[in-house]
Structures are given as C-alpha cells and as structure tokens.
Nucleic acid binder design. Sequence first.
DNA 1: TTAATAGTATACAGATCTGTATACTTTATA
DNA 2: TATAAAGTATACAGATCTGTATACTATTAA
Lengths: 206, 206
Amino acid sequence: MRKRDQLLDKALELFHAEGFHATGIDRIIAAAGVAKMTLYKHFRSKDELILAVLRRYDEKFRNYLMQQVELRTHEPSQQLIALFDVLDDWLDQDGFYGCLMINACAEFSNKQMPAHVVASEHKRLLLLYIQEIAEAAKASDPPVLAQQLGLLMDGAIVAAQVCGQRRAARITHEIAQLLIHQSRSHPSEQVLEPTQSSGSDMPWPD
Amino acid sequence: MRKRDQLLDKALELFHAEGFHATGIDRIIAAAGVAKMTLYKHFRSKDELILAVLRRYDEKFRNYLMQQVELRTHEPSQQLIALFDVLDDWLDQDGFYGCLMINACAEFSNKQMPAHVVASEHKRLLLLYIQEIAEAAKASDPPVLAQQLGLLMDGAIVAAQVCGQRRAARITHEIAQLLIHQSRSHPSEQVLEPTQSSGSDMPWPD
DNA sequence: TTAATAGTATACAGATCTGTATACTTTATA
DNA sequence: TATAAAGTATACAGATCTGTATACTATTAA
C-alpha cells in the first residue's frame, strides 16, 4: 500500500497546483514513479482517484488545523482567535493554491457531483469544529458565530489566492475579535431591515 | 459582430456552469449556433476566448453591482450596506455557480497566467469601487474597510457555492453593519498580539 | 452590380486523454 | 523454497480536443 500513498500524495499536489481537469493521469504516475496499471489497480477511474484525494485532503487539513490550534492555547475563546493565526501561517506559504475543496467546487459545479458533495461535507465538518469551540467559549449563539468565522476564513483564502494578499488573514483576525467579543457580551443580535430589492428590473444575467 | 457576442455569451454561460477545461470548443459553437471557423476568425485560440469572456464578465458584473447599488440608495453609508443586499439577491439565484473570477483562479492557479491576472485585476477594481463609497461615507480608513467588506463578500460567495448556503449574504450583512458602524465611530483601530507561531513544527504539507 | 466581408460546412491533422490487454518481474509470505 | 500478491512495461483502442485547410454561400457596401 506504499504505492497507493505515493499516488495519493502526488495526485493531491498536482490537482492542487494545476487543477483536476488540467492534470492528466500520465503526469500523476510519472510524478509518483508508478506504473499506470498500478494506479488502475488501486482506483477504478480518475474520478475515484479524485474522490480519494479529496477525502485525504479533508482528513489532513482538519487534523492540521486542530493540532495547530491545540498547540497554541487551550482556552476556548483564545482558540477561536488562534484559528486565524493558523490561517495566517497557511496563506503565507509560497506554494499556496487556495483551498482544494473550493477549487474542486469550481470544476465540479453541479451540487450533486460526488466531488462537490465531499467538499460541502468538508466545510460542514469544519464549521462543526468551530461551533464546538464556540460552545466551550460560551458564545451566545455558537452556530451563528461558527458560520461567521468560517465565512471570514473562506474570504481570506480567496483574497490570498486571487489577489495574492498573503496577509489577508490579518484583516480577518481583527474582525474575528470583534465578533467573538460581541458574541460573548450580547446574548442576542439585532436584525436590521435590508434595503428594498429591485425585483426583476435588473437580473444578473448568468 | 453579432456572432461574436453570441459566442461570448454562450462561452460565458458554459465556462461558468461547467468550468474552463471541461468545456470544449465544440460545445460552445453548438450552443452559440455558429461555425467553428467563425470562432477562430474572432479569437486566435481558446485561451484568447477565455480572456475575452473574463473581461466581459468583469465589465458586466461591476456594472450590475454599481447600478443595483445606485438603484437602492444614494446615501454612501447606506450604499455600503446595499452591497450586501445585492449580493443576497445574486447568491439566491437558481443557477448560481460562484464567482467566475474565483473559479478561473482555481483552474489557472499560476499567478502569472493571463486569466489569473485578469481575475486579480477584477477584484482590485471592485475593492477600489467599495473604497470610493467608503470615502464618501467618511469611513476612518476607507482602504481597510473596503478590504474587510470585499473579504466578506467573497466569503459569502464561497459559502453559497460550496455549501449551498443561499442566504450566506445575510450573515455578512450583520457583520458589515458592525464594521461600518465601527469605522465611523472609531478613528483608529487597535491591533492585538497574535498567538505565537509554531514555526516549522507542523508545516501544512502541500 | 460588383467586390469585399462575414459566415458556413466538412473533413482532417495531430495531440492528448482515459482506460485496457497482456506478458513479465519483483516482493512478501507461508 | 513455493506461491500468491503487488507492481511493471509496452502497446494500443477509442474518444475527445484544439486548430487548420478548403471550397462554398450570404451579406453588405461602394
């Protein structure tokens, strides 16, 4: 099973750096130093390899995040902040190609595609993890705070990927502090009226 | 030049819904009802078609956003909020496939690739637009507020695309109000210490 | 009306891509 | 050492993809 791991590692690297459709089977087996037949003995098809890669990424990423957070502090409300310090380290790496799951959803856009389902589940588990910390930190509304913080993280990831803003997490760090502070001081949030919708006057045509 | 527009429209639609690499030339000309040679008389290559599509999207999207904002209110600080109401309408559409520019960066990950450059420029122009509103709204630090709000928008886009959270913009609506209020009441922001970095103990290996 | 321009239809070259067939070799295990 | 499992090398089928060649037909404008 060593060859299988080599394949998954190299496939992850290539899919992440160059995309799923743009990366051919031949590139992967060459990088992994493995025969083509070996790949097809471990995985029925490229699609199945992609799914296995995504599951591996999910596992690696969440473990990395949890371990890094735990390594910095054990105080829940501080852990919420630590999320953004870990994010800061990640976005600042040289070969940063965004979140593989977000990238997967760009290429497998139909929500029923297996890759999209795995990506969606990945984000759900991440939010669940953040929510657990928020509960431990006695936030007033842990699910909402988790969604807010998760959204900030994705925003920073995109800013770093698209605009090369390696320090995008710093921006979110401040906002996160504000939200966490607010969530611990105010038991309920106020909802304000949105400006009126324009209806069908100017539909975004796409 | 009518055929050229048909090509661009259909290419935009297909690239957005199915991805750039996954969409072949033949699919595009069939959808546009145009001969293959016509495509290659208007565009040197598929890559050039992609660039033209991205530029068209940039133009369409920013015009749409500006017109929608202007249509809702003329008061600058209210316009900052209106950004998120427009976003809310957009994310709630049935055929929502994320931001084409973010998707392009997922497939053309190298920052020097022309498509990536166009996408980066698109986000820069968006931030500039938000910054101008922030200035008119007398925000304490318009560039920072613009970055914060832009980041929120991208976060909501990703949440809607990956997790199908059609109402993700509602989450950002609240945060935006908080940030705008803070930016108008506090002339300078306080910077807090980040938790210490772990250095090379646990590098995210990708 | 004539001449230039824009578009069409078809076929095809050449590359690349996924996946398979087959016969062989290495490695691990009992 | 004998046997099963894992891996290799090569060739290839068949599909698909980008881009071109060529000869034809509308359309438009002088």
